[in-house]
Simulated scan of single mutants.
Amino acid sequence: MGANVKRPPLPVILLANDLLDGDVVFAWSDDVGALRWTRDPGLALVATDDRGAILLEGFAATEIAAQHVVDAYLVDVEIGAAGPVPRHFRERFKTLGPSNRPDLGKQAGEGIARQGA
């Protein structure tokens, strides 16, 4: 994610795929402020300003270089009652799980699918 890449409108979250299992993961901040990955979209760290977006971009670059994740990019979101919800269908769809099995994946529980969209 270089400086010449056009950033989506704020607010944004960082979405990626775990390198080992391919599952969609989201950047979040633990209790001491360290950035980590979570599979829970409701916990995704939301950047509301350029400083936050730059922090997420730097975390993405470090994690890609360390071969922890692939395809990391910022996603513009709306803030729903249960947390951030991607504004675009493609990203909402990626967060749900297998499309041929609605009884599996995040869409089977109280995940992002239940938040509207």
Rank of each mutant, 00 (worst) to 15 (best):
H88E: 14
A16H: 03
N100F: 10
A60Q: 05
G80A: 15
A16Y: 01
I64Q: 14
D76F: 00
I64G: 01
K94L: 15
R36T: 12
P98T: 00
Y73S: 08
V75I: 14
L56G: 12
R7I: 13
D23E: 10
F26P: 07
K106L: 08
A108S: 13
H88F: 11
A61C: 02
R51S: 09
G83A: 06
A61L: 11
G22E: 01
A44G: 13
E91L: 00
G2K: 13
R92S: 03
I64E: 15
P98V: 04
P11V: 01
P102T: 05
I79K: 06
G80S: 12
R92N: 07
H68V: 06
P98L: 04
G116D: 08
S29E: 14
S99N: 00
R39L: 09
V24P: 01
A60W: 01
G109Y: 02
L55T: 11
A34V: 05
G109D: 12
R7V: 15
V5H: 11
F59V: 09
E78W: 02
I79Q: 11
A108L: 06
V46N: 04
E91N: 09
T38Y: 05
L19M: 10
V70R: 15
V75L: 08
A81P: 11
N4R: 10
R39P: 04
R87S: 06
L14G: 02
A108C: 06
L19W: 00
R114F: 02
S99A: 12
D21H: 05
F89I: 09
A81T: 14
A117E: 06
V75C: 08
Q115Y: 03
A66D: 14
A65K: 14
L96D: 01
R90M: 08
R92V: 10
G97S: 01
A44Y: 05
D103A: 12
G83M: 04
P8N: 03
D50H: 02
A108D: 02
E63D: 12
F26T: 05
D103E: 15
R101V: 13
P8T: 05
N100Q: 10
L104Y: 05
L20A: 11
L43M: 15
D71E: 13
S29C: 11
A82Y: 08
L35I: 10
A82Q: 14
G105N: 06
D21A: 00
V25T: 06
M1C: 11
L45C: 09
W28Y: 15
K94R: 14
P86M: 03
E91H: 13
A16T: 07
R51M: 01
Y73M: 05
E110I: 07
D18R: 07
A27V: 13
D31Q: 13
V24I: 15
V5D: 15
V24E: 03
N17Q: 15
D103V: 12
A44V: 07
I64Y: 00
V70L: 06
G22T: 04
F89H: 05
D103T: 11
G111C: 11
E110T: 13
W37M: 09
P11Q: 04
V77K: 03
V25C: 10
P41L: 11
W37V: 03
L56S: 08
Y73A: 12
D40W: 08
V32F: 11
G80W: 04
